[in-house]
Write a protein that binds this DNA or RNA. Structure first.
Lengths: 217, 217
DNA sequence: GCTTGTATTAAACAGTTGTTTAAAATGATT
DNA sequence: AATCATTTTAAACAACTGTTTAATACAAGC
């Protein structure tokens, strides 16, 4: 048995390269041979260390989730001493950078986004461990902003509204690249986009709590 | 043996089945044998009528766009005599039904959403003919709602906010299915979700035009 | 009849896929 | 040095891929 404290070079290299290639090409389009070629290991290594290509994918996905949450922790959004409006802004800004950072490790979110858009059997395992906590956090923040207690489905719909605005930048990246490339040109632009989403969402939330006075004040 | 009930030519049958299978499995996972099998034609037919599998995909994608715009025309949203707030609500409701209708022809939007999330070479051809007009329409409506003239990028960001909320229901369907399946259970739920998006967005838009100091009444 | 052009077919092609095998290399323990 | 389990390797496997081929079927025109 290999001690869990010492890292296995081939195993680790395989996992990292797998995230890279799976994120780039998707599950089906990536070949085991491509992964092994980039990792400079034999083709049989995948079936030796992992049971199969599918098992490697599953582990790579879990690894990607762990990495994103390690590199982009939601500490400030979890800080209950801050006003919820600020926590929401932090959550959105953090999520957007998580999704859009293209430097080397944006691959993790790319793989995750791909899995969400076109799920495989591995999704269910991931949901519980990594996605549900994020959702719960956002739900809490929304509930705090909508001070008075509201129907559960309203909170859920608001959550989807906010999350949808964020995920747009990942799932519909192809459209944004073609229509408004300047909106995600650099880090400053991304931050500005995040601020817009926060502002847009806070405006909507604060309006929803008010009684049904129509557009004319 | 000639099919007595369906006298549809092989070309048309191939195109329809292609939309179905490509939407279900994506470009790469789809095999021409599967398409031909479901269409009850020989394997060579794809290369006979269309040049290649890729050409068939390209034509299937264009066909899907034509069909969605035929089945869900944006007439009411185009009606310039209506108030822009109502036109926005119609646009959103129409888009959401377009995206979520699973009856037989929701396949078209499924194929399109797949292409947006994971674009192939065929996307650029489609953008111009089918997507840009929809975007332009939404841009116009937003500009009307934000009465006073605002910066171009603000309109663009608001457009992405609204579009993101709609596309969420398609691109992240896997998440919604697992977290809040009741939100898209039936046509009534979909309509309610559409009304929420419209309300959420209108609230945000009307707030964005006002000065920001109005947090507490 | 025959010819001509199109449509359809079964079979084969050439390449790639994930996976397995069985031999060889490695490294620690005796 | 010999034994043992573990790791690495090249090669082969069987199945599947998109595409092509060459033989056929079929209709219309002469």
């Amino acid at each position: 048995m290999t001690p869990s404290t010492t890292i296995e070079p081939v195993f680790d290299r395989l996992l990292q390269v797998a995230v890279e290639v799976f994120a780039e090409c998707g599950f089906r389009e990536t070949t085991v041979r491509e992964i092994c070629s980039r990792a400079h290991v034999n083709v049989a290594s995948v079936n030796y260390y992992f049971r199969s290509k599918e098992a490697l994918y599953s582990q790579a996905l879990a690894f990607a989730f762990r990495e994103t949450n390690r590199l982009y922790p939601q500490d400030a959004a979890l800080d209950k001493s801050l006003p919820p409006e600020q926590r929401l802004a932090v959550f959105i800004n953090n999520s957007l950078h998580k999704l859009l950072d293209d430097n080397q490790l944006g691959l993790h979110s790319k793989l995750i986004a791909r899995e969400i858009a076109d799920p495989t059997n591995a999704l269910d395992d991931i949901m519980e461990t990594a996605l549900v906590p994020q959702i719960a956090l956002l739900e809490d923040i929304i509930r705090l902003i909508l001070k008075e207690p509201v129907d559960k489905v309203i909170v859920q719909r608001c959550l989807l509204s906010i999350l949808g605005q964020c995920l747009m930048f990942k799932h519909s990246r192809s459209i944004i690249d073609r229509l408004y490339p300047e909106l995600i040109a650099d880090a400053a632009a991304i931050q500005a986009s995040a601020e817009h989403i926060a502002q847009f969402s806070l405006a909507a939330l604060s309006r929803l709590t008010l009684p049904k006075e129509q557009t004319t004040p």
